[in-house]
């Protein structure tokens, strides 16, 4: 997910409600925010609420954004805090077995297989804590770009690598349960 150059012009156009800028914002940052909140909350409906909340916070705070810093990192901080707040407020515990979604009216084996794999990945990821889940998914989302991940999360390279390694080690421990081929 490539970061768009967010400059004063883009912020100004966004503030005027320019529909093209809003679309660009949603394509780049809206998707990213949804990704972060989903990985924390693991439920689409909750992630949508947290995404909406995050985007509204971003809009209201546009004037406080420092152009020298990464806009994506700024969005990440707001999204992460909002999602964690939601998680605390809802106080639900993720039952890993609830992660299995019902596949209805699917038409082909390929779709069934894809949905099952996606569902398995979701269930597998629920074995991790929120931070590890977000880090590992961002790592793949950012096409394994550690530099980008450092910018976004604000973690040091060594800390990030340790967290990434621990997360993958934990996943490998449980992977056999969900994937026959592993």
């Amino acid at each position: 997910m490539n970061e768009l150059l967010v400059d004063k012009g883009f912020i100004s156009r966004l503030k005027t409600g320019d529909s093209k800028s809003i679309k660009v914002f949603m394509d780049t940052y809206g998707r990213f925010i949804y990704h972060v909140t989903y990985k924390v909350l693991l439920q689409a409906s909750e992630a949508e609420e947290a995404t909406q909340d995050t985007i509204l916070k971003v809009i209201k705070a546009l004037d406080t954004y420092d152009l020298k810093s990464s806009f994506k990192a700024w969005c990440y901080t707001i999204a992460w805090r909002t999602a964690i707040d939601y998680k605390r407020r809802l106080k639900y515990t993720v039952d890993i077995h609830e992660g299995m979604e019902v596949i209805s009216s699917v038409t082909s084996d390929a779709i069934i297989h894809q949905s099952e794999t996606q569902s398995n990945i979701k269930t597998l990821l629920s074995h991790l804590d929120e931070e590890s889940r977000v880090i590992i998914s961002l790592y793949y989302l950012e096409e394994k770009n550690i530099r980008e991940l450092i910018d976004i999360t604000g973690l040091t390279e060594s800390n990030l690598k340790v967290k990434l390694f621990r997360a993958r080690k934990e996943l490998a421990k449980h992977a056999g349960k969900y994937f026959e081929q592993i």
Binding site: R31, Y34, H35, A47, T117, I121, Y140, L141, A175
Partner: peptide, 9 residues
Amino acid sequence: QLQHFSTVE
């Protein structure tokens, strides 16, 4: 698997 399925839309 993570590479293919860890993104959500």
